[in-house]
Design a binder for these strands. Sequence first.
DNA 1: AACATTTCCACAAACGTTTGCAGTCATCGC
DNA 2: GCGATGACTGCAAACGTTTGTGGAAATGTT
Lengths: 332, 332
Amino acid sequence: MRNNATLKKISDHLNVSISTVSRALKDHPDVSPDTKKRVKELAMLMDYEPNAFAVNLRKKHSNVFAIIVPEISNFFYHSFVQAVEEDARRIGYSVMILQSMNDPEVEEQNLRLCRHNHVAGIFVSITNRTTDIAPFKKLEAIDIPLVFFDKVPTDDTFNKVSIADYESGWMAAEHLLTAPAKHVLLVMGNNKLSITRRREEGFTDYYHKHQCKKKLAVVYADHIEEARQAVLDYFAANKNTPTAIFSMSDEIMCGVLKAIHTLNLQIPKDIQLLTISNGFLPTLFTPDISFVKTSGYDLGKLSFVRMQEIMGGKKFVRENFLTSSYYPGGSM
Amino acid sequence: MRNNATLKKISDHLNVSISTVSRALKDHPDVSPDTKKRVKELAMLMDYEPNAFAVNLRKKHSNVFAIIVPEISNFFYHSFVQAVEEDARRIGYSVMILQSMNDPEVEEQNLRLCRHNHVAGIFVSITNRTTDIAPFKKLEAIDIPLVFFDKVPTDDTFNKVSIADYESGWMAAEHLLTAPAKHVLLVMGNNKLSITRRREEGFTDYYHKHQCKKKLAVVYADHIEEARQAVLDYFAANKNTPTAIFSMSDEIMCGVLKAIHTLNLQIPKDIQLLTISNGFLPTLFTPDISFVKTSGYDLGKLSFVRMQEIMGGKKFVRENFLTSSYYPGGSM
DNA sequence: AACATTTCCACAAACGTTTGCAGTCATCGC
DNA sequence: GCGATGACTGCAAACGTTTGTGGAAATGTT
């Protein structure tokens, strides 16, 4: 028993033309109040719903936004998604979430899906290993607006919205370097990403500018397990060294904590820890982990504003930054 | 500069008909090897991509699956999504993720989106407060296959795939009741959900069957903060009472842990804790939280099998269950 | 009464694809 | 040399919608 209510069927029942039905349903001034009423009633009765395929074919674009992220298992993205969904809903659009599994190939498949479905716009946080920007260029060629957020490519012909990474690294240093430990370990993500480089730069610039005498080490990790291993390796080489650790993300922090637990070290006695986070995970531990807050929600709101600007025709490329602030916990 | 490669344009360039181009591109035996070659080459050159709207309009359905979950911030769902994505990709389908934000109204909006886009199939884990199943019935009326997973409605005209909840509750009791504490606290989710009722039933059945003498209390919570408050309330009424706590999910566990941290209680000395989990979160803490494992990944695989059966025409309704197993940590 | 305007509606083209059907050749068997 | 077969290819309808255009009444203006 298929749902077959269509403009044609309604028009047949009412002895009016298809176009009249179409216009009646969208309150076009050309149709009389009386027919409007009749059409709407019958449409309601027949449970009419416009066929999105036909509408989109005609209009050449759909009204759903896509969000492409490396992995949805990231608290930062949850609030981002929520913010975008709120705003999208407000203007009658929907949001579909696609994850690239940190695989450029999957990412490209997702982009293809977006192209085929002529999505209204795409918010994308790129993969650690994304190097080919051609698929993104392709999107712009067919006028699908693109906003990069959080993990953005270095290419600067794109619209990007990101955390003020340099500043948050700087802020992290500002607080972490007050910790007693004489050693400092930076556990960073993939060092090809601008997000990583800028956070590290912010941190080390503060470090050098204040002529900090602590011994500084930096390690890079692509995911939890690598972060854990990196920290284990560090402590294998620096046994019993009180160290202040800077973790640049939730994911990294999880790895760091696993290592710390493995080594049975105490926070904040043996180790001081400060991370950059959206704020959820750090509060789950004892003591709370101190963090520099980066709001995925705010980033989502900002990204959406950019998206609407682009959709509205503002074509100039821009990069926006979002400031962050410090939330002291008990890990320092 | 729009990407306009279309069958018509290709046909114009090659002086053949649209239909020939269409058939050539899909290796229809009716068209000669020579024209096939020419068409394919030009199509490649022009970067032709079929217009999904037109294809779908013609075929009356798209090739994307939808997954609707209350919230994506749930580790259990991540692996579920991953499993489904893997299998979908394998048969050339895509997956879109929609979250209902635990709001039945948003859930219905998402269902509407699925209907309008004539999605190939829907995997849905319902909201805590979903009572109206009419929108789901509507989906079936237009032949969109539906598989409920994890949080499933009680109505048994639907296809459902879920954790063997009773069994996992039973298993949890089996292990938790060996803990030294004389008091047992069950922190459960929304008690209208069958998942909650069955897990609780499994637990209490074991409890009664073994004539357990420990003092049993049960509280319900809809989200993290409620869980935290419930535990705080419990300990306000039972000061310094060594208690073994059963948490029925990751989310609940987070709330429980927050309360435990607030009260400065020690695990496993003062409190023993056992949760049901997908396995990620429990390992982030020290000591590791013991858990009964429910595999989202396996559930995803199973759900997909069901989905394909339904799509293949097997119409009979069934409910599948997935067994779980115990992973000891250091929290007991 | 003649003409202009408004109100309401229908026609038809277009969006890009798929597919049943029919048509045009050339080749083959006899 | 005639019908039959087979290999290609094109025509046209259909999917359901939107929208520019034009036309027939009804109303208004002088």
